[in-house]
Design a protein around this nucleic acid. Structure first.
Length: 411
RNA sequence: GCGGGCGUAGCUCAGGUGGUAGAGCGCCAGAUUGUGGUUCUGGAUGUCACGGGUUCGAGUCCCGUCGCUCGCCCCA
């Protein structure tokens, strides 16, 4: 019979893969806690409108990448393609717009129907933080600083660069968009086909085109700076000052834009050159318009998301598996006593295992195979003395230890 | 959605020009019935991704499908 294959773009996390994955999540959980973020868990699927209403009609995520289906009652549901929309829905659903600010840490699976590639899967996983209810530039700086701290704790910050930009407020962005459209329209014939299409739908996106045909035109394209309102310019300065104060190095990149419509002001990406085309490892920005889109009051917010798979790939070495202690009864007569020892070790928080079958040699082999750091060998004569043989499996040294002292020796 | 590369044992891979499948690692057993790792000996690896075609004969050539991978696209 032909074995059933895993769904395209999904993968099993086993062994080293899950240890890397956990390392990312647990590091993020620990660091975000010190920054005052609290973990939320929201449903993996939502009413389709949670995403269609907020992500914008022009985004590819909504138009062709969502896993959308009707449930048995005919309601349209969607497996979440990103975290922020669901978090904002939860904020409104739980009446928490009355209890601001909220600082949220989040991690879990996301789903997008994309062509799989290195670091890109159809079920992928993100860590995400959101700071909702503060419009001060220090909020942006703190959110970015927290992300940077996680990258540092993972030991990958050295190969990653933070790039930031501002999209301005609505007034700034409209003025800038108009300037871009008139500039690109004047060079329309030289633009790539894709970029000509974007000119109608989403002209800002032309800025991060990788088409060689566009590069020359982009080099001379107007920057947003002159179009920023005084407020927007001051806000951007405030964010940069804040980053300096938090000790986060950054580089300004006027080409950073956002594909989703609800962003304003700060946009940023942590980028590495180590992952080929999928080089953005953590990205986010300010989205002051989103909570209102979800039916709540106008509420400022800033956050980021990061791909766990990509971070896991950047970890230079996988965290090692926890090495157990192997309990080895020499004969069936001491099996019950061995289980007592097993229980005693586990109750003390020591990872301990016992093989159920095979002779002594077989069980010692097994102890070695599971990477045990030590073997606790119990024979009938040992039991009579209230002792065990404790063998260090690295050095091979073995000595007799009274059962009462065993836990202390292994902690 | 578009383009390139690749699918042979559990893993990593070898198999000029077509002639019924191999290595290393790992696995199992023994040397060794109260002591693992090292060593030695023996053993099993398999619809050659799947389906069709060409041929006396296909792992090898052709077509299709599926999957993986790299890039494009897209993206927190």
């Amino acid at each position: 019979m032909t074995p059933i294959q895993p769904i395209r773009g999904t993968r099993d996390l086993i062994g080293e893969d899950i240890r890397r994955h956990r390392q990312v999540i647990e590091t993020a959980r620990r660091i975000t806690e010190t920054y005052g973020f609290e973990e939320w868990v929201t449903p993996i699927f939502e009413d389709t409108r949670v995403f269609s209403r907020t992500l914008g009609d022009t985004s590819d995520v909504v138009t062709k990448e969502m896993y959308t289906f009707a449930d048995r009652s005919g309601e349209s549901l969607t497996l979440r393609p990103e975290a922020t929309a669901g978090i904002c829905r939860a904020l409104v659903s739980n009446g928490l717009t009355q209890s601001l600010p909220q600082k949220i840490f989040f991690s879990g699976p996301m789903f997008r129907y994309e062509r799989p590639q290195k670091g890109r899967y159809r079920q992928f996983h993100q860590i995400d933080i959101e700071l909702i209810g503060r419009s001060h530039p220090l909020a942006d700086a703190e959110v970015i600083a927290c992300g940077f701290a996680i990258l540092e704790a993972l030991g990958v910050a050295g190969e990653i660069v933070l790039e930031i930009n501002t999209l301005g407020d609505t007034e700034s962005r409209n003025a800038y968009r108009a300037a871009l459209v008139s500039y690109f329209a004047a060079h329309r014939d030289a633009l790539s086909v894709e970029s000509r299409a974007r000119l109608e739908r989403n002209p800002l996106r032309i800025l991060d085109s990788k088409e060689p045909a566009d590069q020359e035109i982009l080099a001379e394209a107007p920057a947003i700076g002159p179009h920023l309102t005084a407020n927007a310019a001051a806000f951007y300065e405030g964010v940069k000052e804040g980053l300096t104060r938090f000790g986060v190095p950054f580089r300004e990149n006027p080409r950073i834009v956002r594909g989703l419509d609800y962003y304003s002001h700060t946009a940023f990406e942590f980028v590495t050159t180590h992952l080929g085309a999928q080089g953005t490892v953590m990205a986010g920005g300010r989205y002051d318009g989103l909570v209102a889109e979800m039916g709540g009051p106008p509420t400022p917010a800033v956050g980021w998301a990061a791909g766990i798979e990509r971070l896991a790939m950047l970890l230079t070495e996988a965290p090692p598996a926890l090495r157990p202690v192997a309990v080895v009864p020499v004969s069936a007569a001491v099996e019950a006593a061995s289980v007592d020892i097993l229980r005693r070790l586990r109750a003390a928080g020591i990872r301990a295992e016992m093989e159920y079958q095979g002779n002594l040699r077989r069980r010692m082999e097994r102890a070695n195979r599971i990477g045990a750091r030590a073997a606790v060998i119990l024979g009938e004569d040992d039991m009579a003395r209230g002792a065990v043989q404790l063998k260090d499996l690295a050095s091979g040294a073995q000595e007799e230890v009274p059962v009462m002292e065993l836990v202390g020796r292994l902690l």
